[in-house]
C-alpha cells in the first residue's frame, strides 16, 4: 500500500444541504498509476473528481497534488498546477463553435505564446497520437461520432503535456469495440507519457483492462483500494453484486494485461 500518493486526499467532507456525500474520505493516487474509481450512482465519484480538479470546493478536508495543498494554494500556484492536469469530461465537452483542430489548439494558444504554425503542427500531431487522421481536423464538432469525440477530448486533455489525467466515464456511450479501442489507447498513451490517471468509470471491462488499482466509493468514503482482482473478492455485498454479477464475471474472464508489475507483486 502506498503511504502518500502524488495526489492525496485527506478527511474530505462534502455536503449538499442535508445530503452528506463524503465523510472523512481518504484516497491516494500513486505516481504513474491508473486508479479507477467505482461506486453506485450518487456515491460521489464525480464530486470527488471535481474536488481534486478545483471545480468544486469541498466542505472540509485537505487535497494535495504533488505536495501543493490545493485548498490553501494561492492562485498562481493553482494555475501552475491546473496546467499540469488534463481532463476528459463525460460527454467530451468539446467547444461546439470551434472545429476539431481549434478545440485542441485553444489551450496551447491561451497558455503558451508559440508561433501559429508550430502550435498547429503540435495539435495535429496530438490528433494523430490519439488515432485520428488529419482529415478530421477542420471538421465541425457536431459531425463527429461518439468515439471520435472522446478521442478529440483526449487530444485536448493531452495538449499541454499534463502529468495528471482525469477521465470521467470515457467509455460511456461507446460501442464495445470503440470502448475497447479507447481503453487500449489510454493504456498506450499512459505508459508512454508516464501519466498519473484518475479514472471514473462504470464499465467493468474497462476496470480490468486498464486499472492498476481500483477504489470503491460507498457509504460516503473509500471502502477499499486494491488491485482489481483483490477488490473483486472483497466480501462487501455491493462489491460482490458489482463484480460477481453477470457483467462483472464476463469481464474478469476476459484477457487482462498486467499493467504495472510492481503493484501486482
Amino acid at each position: 500500500m502506498v503511504s502518500k500518493g502524488i495526489i492525496s486526499v485527506r478527511g474530505l467532507h462534502n455536503q449538499f444541504g442535508d445530503n452528506l456525500v463524503h465523510e472523512q474520505l481518504d484516497l491516494d493516487v500513486a505516481q504513474g498509476e491508473i486508479l479507477t474509481v467505482v461506486g453506485g450512482s450518487g456515491s460521489g465519484k464525480s464530486v470527488l473528481m471535481r474536488s481534486i480538479l478545483g471545480l468544486h470546493r469541498p466542505s472540509a478536508g485537505q487535497i494535495e497534488v504533488d505536495g501543493v495543498d490545493l485548498l490553501r494554494a494561492d492562485s498562481e500556484q493553482r494555475v501552475q498546477l491546473e496546467r499540469r492536469m488534463g481532463v476528459l469530461f463525460q460527454r467530451g465537452a468539446l467547444y461546439s463553435s470551434l472545429t476539431v483542430l481549434e478545440n485542441v489548439l485553444l489551450p496551447l494558444q491561451e497558455h503558451l505564446s508559440l508561433p501559429a504554425e508550430d502550435a498547429e503542427a503540435l495539435a495535429l500531431m496530438k490528433l494523430r497520437l490519439v488515432g485520428l487522421s488529419s482529415a478530421v481536423a477542420d471538421n465541425s464538432v457536431q459531425s463527429l461520432s461518439g468515439g471520435m469525440i472522446k478521442r478529440v477530448a483526449l487530444a485536448r486533455a493531452l495538449i499541454l503535456e499534463p502529468d495528471f489525467l482525469f477521465l470521467d466515464e470515457p467509455t460511456a456511450g461507446l460501442d464495445p469495440i470503440g470502448a475497447n479501442d479507447f481503453d487500449e489507447l489510454l493504456v498506450t498513451v499512459q505508459r508512454a507519457l508516464g501519466l498519473t490517471v484518475f479514472l471514473v468509470t462504470h464499465d467493468v471491462d474497462s476496470i480490468f483492462k486498464v486499472s492498476d488499482r481500483v477504489a470503491v466509493l460507498a457509504e460516503r468514503k473509500v471502502l477499499v483500494v486494491d488491485t482489481p482482482e483483490r477488490v473483486a473478492t472483497h466480501p462487501d455485498q455491493w462489491i460482490q453484486a458489482y463484480f460477481q454479477g453477470p457483467r462483472g464475471r464476463a469481464a474478469q474472464q476476459g484477457k487482462r494485461h498486467p499493467v504495472n508489475a510492481e503493484e501486482d507483486a
Partner: peptide
C-alpha cells in the same frame, strides 16, 4: 503518429 500522414493543406 508523425509517420502516418502529412499535414493537410489548408
Amino acid at each position: 503518429a508523425c509517420k502516418d500522414e502529412q499535414a493537410p493543406q489548408h
